[in-house]
Amino acid sequence: MGNDVRELDDPVDVIVVGSGAGGLATAVAAAAMGLSVRVLEKEAFFGGTTAYSGGVLWIPCHRKDPSIKDSIEAARTYMLHEAGDHFDSARVDAFLRSGPEMIEFFERNSSLEFVSVPEFSDYHPNAPGAMPGDDRYLLPLTMHVNSDNLPTDSVHP
Rank of each mutant, 00 (worst) to 15 (best):
Y78N: 09
I15E: 06
A31R: 13
A44I: 07
T26R: 05
L112P: 07
K42M: 09
L57S: 08
V5I: 14
M1N: 14
G23C: 01
G23N: 03
G47Q: 06
A44W: 09
G84R: 04
V145P: 08
T26F: 04
T50V: 05
A130C: 02
G20M: 03
G34S: 02
P140V: 06
G99H: 07
H124G: 07
P118A: 00
F106N: 08
V28T: 15
D70A: 11
L24W: 11
R91D: 02
V12S: 06
L138P: 03
C61L: 02
A25C: 15
H156N: 05
V17K: 04
L80Y: 08
H62V: 03
M102I: 11
H81Q: 01
S36G: 03
S147P: 07
S111N: 14
T26G: 09
D13G: 06
R76L: 00
A127E: 09
V92C: 03
F87W: 03
R136K: 04
Y78M: 03
D9A: 13
G55P: 06
P157K: 09
L141D: 03
G18L: 04
E119A: 15
G129I: 02
V5T: 14
A31Y: 08
G2W: 11
D148R: 11
M143P: 10
S67D: 11
F45R: 15
T49H: 13
L139K: 10
D122H: 10
G22D: 05
L112T: 09
S110A: 01
A27F: 01
G54I: 07
Y78P: 03
E7N: 12
L112M: 11
N146I: 07
R63N: 14
T50H: 08
S36D: 01
S111K: 13
F87E: 00
A75K: 07
R76S: 06
L8G: 08
V5K: 11
V145G: 10
S111E: 14
R76K: 12
E41L: 09
G2K: 15
S110Y: 00
N109W: 09
E107S: 04
C61V: 15
S110T: 13
G55F: 05
A130S: 12
S147N: 14
V12T: 01
T49P: 03
T77K: 08
A83F: 12
S154I: 10
H144Q: 14
A90K: 15
E101L: 14
A29W: 13
G129W: 01
T152W: 11
R136T: 00
T77Y: 09
T142G: 02
G20Y: 01
G55I: 03
G54N: 12
D4V: 14
G2Y: 11
E73G: 06
F114V: 02
P125W: 02
F114R: 00
D153Q: 12
L112Q: 12
V5M: 12
V16R: 04
M33Y: 10
V28R: 13
H144I: 15
D122C: 10
K64I: 00
P11T: 02
G84Q: 04
L80F: 11
D70G: 05
T77R: 10
G55M: 07
N126W: 10
R38C: 04
E41D: 05
R136G: 00
G20N: 01
G99C: 02
T49R: 14
M1P: 13
